[in-house]
Design a protein around this nucleic acid. Structure first.
Lengths: 150, 150
DNA sequence: CCGTAACGGTTGCAACATGCTACCAAGAGG
DNA sequence: CCTCTTGGTAGCATGTTGCAACCGTTACGG
């Protein structure tokens, strides 16, 4: 199992997130889930991942509450894997990764898949990190407070 | 090496991003870099990672253009690892992971480190995925277009 | 019904990545 | 000089991944 969560890192939300989804396949499985994949075979064909690896990943994602195994929606006796609310909450993470990839790994004009607004068909607005009062923040405008409660 | 980028996945920006930073340590190294770590020893102590692993990760992050190795700022002959512009552009990714972790892996009132606005000391606003014209989008409001150019 | 193919896995093994410990060379610092 | 710190490398044990073969169950056509 990948599961770590090291010592003093355990209080860091980033570490817990990475612990849950921070390997190559898990993130791509979640991406495919957002993209509509539900069945074992869909994930397997789409990702080209070995079946035993997929089995293990799906299990940990289900165990971690990111995916849920439900009866198939087409009436067959098989099961499907769908995002839980916790899994759906990963949407900004996937979008952030996608935008970073688009902006840094493709030559101008190089084709790539694109996430668009279903209603208008336009590209999404680039994610912005905002302060509580709406100012746009850069990394140096922020700082980490250790061990505060919410 | 972790590097894959599988077949038809290569056109997906998410896959390229995950290929560059999608392992346990890389994301935490980047998080620490945002948090001010610069020196080999700082990362090593902060993460508790084995030195040979850290060496390898720093090398791939530098090779991937996320970090840059520069002469130490304190005048010593040692070197430091700092985020490139491409690395700084990961800010929304880290923030998204942090917020997801905060909201899904901590009991109410459980203490955790917190990213705050340096000017006001307040928590950041939760990231929102917006359409080009500013509407707030949920996963089901979006769809993927394959192989479009920008 | 029956045969066959697709689905959704499991198992075993080889290859590779990770982690630990020991070691080491080149600065820093006195 | 002498010693401590920094920033690694080397070797080995262990864990994880990937591949291919196999298998029970379910759908599906006739």
């Amino acid at each position: 199992m990948v599961s770590r969560t090291r010592f003093d890192d355990s209080e860091c939300p980033v570490a817990r997130s990475v612990d849950a989804i921070g390997d190559w396949w898990s993130l791509l499985i979640v991406r495919d889930a957002f993209d509509g994949s539900r069945r074992f075979g869909e994930f397997q064909r789409s990702l080209g991942v070995a079946k035993n690896i997929l089995t293990a990943r799906l299990r940990t994602l289900v165990a971690g509450g990111v995916l849920e195994s439900v009866p198939a929606s087409d009436g067959s006796a098989y099961r499907e894997y769908v995002l839980t609310p916790k899994g759906e909450a990963l949407f900004p993470v996937i979008v952030a990764l996608r935008q970073w990839g688009e902006q840094n790994f493709f030559a101008p004009g190089e084709p790539h898949s694109q996430l668009v607004d279903r209603e208008q068909g336009h590209r999404l607005r680039t994610l912005e990190v905002l302060s509580a009062d709406g100012r746009r923040l850069n990394p140096e405008d922020t700082t980490v407070h250790k061990l505060s409660t919410r």
